[in-house]
Each structure stands twice: as structure tokens, then as C-alpha cells.
């Protein structure tokens, strides 16, 4: 790649172009000031107390739950592709010798210079971080946090172990475990749509909270199916909470949202830890086979 591309007269033209873009975009953003429409959001907010106390969780994992399924897929695919770049799953055509695959080498570690105190405190910190990740996960429906945050915190614990102890990471996650947990996580999320699909025909209908067929909200026409009680209890009751709010007390349940969060957490743990693992330790198919 030659860096001459943006020098000289081309550079000046580019700067002018950037200025035009900047002026155009910023003037239009200024126009937006005071003109923002509320649109659909008041409706969402009205429904929120019947579901998760954490309004954000019900937005992200219920109303827009299918969006988040694909968004989670971005992380999964990101891991798949990053690991592919390192060498997992490079394919060759039978009988055709193309160029040899580009083989990256793993990182060299030098952990001997590390402070003794850091080494001593490494394991407790990792354990506490993992516990914190699980706390964030369990609080998904009631407080800030959720599956994605849990995964990120967990993987930071894993990265910490890598930095402190090199190849002897106390949090010893094997490649197979990570790939499996990532895949299982995404499929838990995907399959949690199934109960709603089978009973009401709507994918990812929240059978636990069951806002629309249980008569919590009056005046809905067109929904033919009613969620059977057993499903409602199975997915709803373990997460039923009493919300004492200024305008009354609501018995609300987040239904499948906390379960989705567990799937999401697994997925993120698998994906991000796998990226860390492969970028630091490298990937070697032969080594994997001998395990």
C-alpha cells in the first residue's frame, strides 16, 4: 500500500471533501435539536412494569429480542472469523496445491519478571472476578448488567490470568470447551424462541411473562393461542418478583429474559475468550488432535 495516495493535490481535495461532509452532517445534526420525535417509546415504557424491573433488559431481550439474537451472532461470527484468520478451519481443495496458508506464530511469554505480590494475588482476583461476572449475570432482569457484561468481565478475568501466569493460566479453558460453550450459548438463545413459537406462533414470545394472552392488558384482538399454564409457570415463576412502585404494586416476571441472558453470557464468554486464547497461544490443528 503506498502512502502517496493522500499526498499533494489529492490530499487537498480530500480535505475539502471532508470539510463539506463535516459541514453538511453537523448542520443537519443541529436541525435535529428539539425536533426529536418520541414515536413508539411511550408504548414500550407503559408496558415495562409488567415485565422485568430493569426496563433496559425488557427492551433489549424481549421487545427487540430477535434483534439481539442476531447482534449476539455478530460476536459469535466475529470469534469464528478471527480464529479462522489464525488457522482454525482453513480449507484446501483436494489435489490442488495453492499457496501455503499463512501461519501466524504464537506469542512469547516472559512472566518471570512479574512481581511476586501480583502472582500471589492473581488467583483470588480471578476467582472474585468470575464471581462478580456471575453476580452481574444473575442481576440481569433486576438491575443493570446482563449476559454480555458477564461475558466481558469473565473474559477479562481470563486475560488477567494469561498476563500473570502465561501458559499456566489458573483459569484453564480448553479450545474445545470454549467453542462448545460459545455454540451452546447462542443455541440456547436461539432455542428459547421455540416455546413461544410452538404455542402462539410468534417466535420468542415471552411465555413466562405472557402479557398478551393472560389478560394482563385488555383489548387485544387477533391472538388466537393461549399459552398453557405449565409453560407459563415453568418459565415465569422462578423469576417472579413483587415490584413496589409509587403507582402500585406489580407482580411481574421477566419470563425467559434471564435465561436468554445466560445463553448470551455463554456465547460471549466462548467467543471473546476464544479470541484471546487464539491470538495469544496460537492455533495448531495437530496439537488439538493429540489432546
Amino acid at each position: 500500500m503506498d502512502s502517496k495516495g493522500l499526498k499533494g493535490s489529492r490530499g487537498i481535495i480530500a480535505v475539502i471533501a471532508l470539510m463539506i461532509i463535516f459541514v453538511g452532517v453537523s448542520t443537519s445534526l443541529l436541525q435535529l435539536n428539539g425536533n426529536v420525535a418520541r414515536g413508539i417509546s411511550p408504548e414500550y415504557n407503559e408496558l415495562a412494569p409488567y415485565e422485568a424491573p430493569n426496563n433496559l433488559a425488557s427492551w433489549v431481550y424481549d421487545y427487540r429480542g430477535f434483534d439481539t439474537l442476531i447482534e449476539t451472532g455478530v460476536i459469535y461470527v466475529g470469534a469464528l472469523v478471527s480464529v479462522l484468520a489464525i488457522g482454525r478451519g482453513i480449507v484446501r481443495v483436494k489435489g490442488v496445491e495453492g499457496d501455503a496458508p499463512v501461519a501466524p506464530s504464537s506469542m512469547e511469554f516472559n512472566v518471570s519478571t512479574l512481581n511476586v505480590i501480583l502472582k500471589y494475588f492473581g488467583v483470588p482476583v480471578i476467582i472474585l472476578l468470575v464471581a462478580y461476572a456471575l453476580l452481574v449475570l444473575t442481576g440481569a432482569a433486576t438491575s443493570g448488567g446482563g449476559g454480555f457484561q458477564c461475558g466481558v468481565i469473565f473474559s477479562s478475568a481470563y486475560l488477567l490470568g494469561m498476563i500473570f501466569y502465561g501458559r499456566k493460566n489458573p483459569l484453564n479453558l480448553s479450545k474445545k470447551f470454549l467453542i462448545a460453550i460459545g455454540g451452546v450459548g447462542w443455541s440456547i438463545y436461539a432455542l428459547l424462541g421455540l416455546p413461544g413459537y410452538l404455542t402462539t406462533g410468534y417466535w420468542q414470545y415471552n411465555v413466562g411473562a405472557d402479557l398478551w394472552t393472560s389478560g394482563v392488558i385488555p383489548g387485544v384482538d387477533g391472538m388466537a393461542a393461549v399459552v398453557p399454564d405449565i409453560l407459563r409457570q415453568l418459565f415465569g415463576d422462578p423469576f417472579r418478583l413483587l415490584l413496589v412502585m409509587s403507582d402500585g404494586t406489580y407482580a411481574s416476571t421477566a419470563g425467559i429474559v434471564p435465561l436468554i441472558n445466560i445463553g448470551e453470557a455463554f456465547n460471549v464468554i466462548g467467543a471473546i475468550c476464544l479470541i484471546f486464547l487464539v491470538f495469544v497461544y496460537g492455533w495448531n490443528d495437530e496439537e488439538e488432535k493429540s489432546r
Binding site: A131, L134, T138, G139, P238, L241, T253
Partner: peptide, 11 residues
Amino acid sequence: LAGEVTTIVIA
């Protein structure tokens, strides 16, 4: 309301 115990079990 079981919701307050479930989190502990999951953790």
C-alpha cells in the same frame, strides 16, 4: 416470590 432465590441458585 421465588424470583429472589432463583438468582442465588443460578449463581
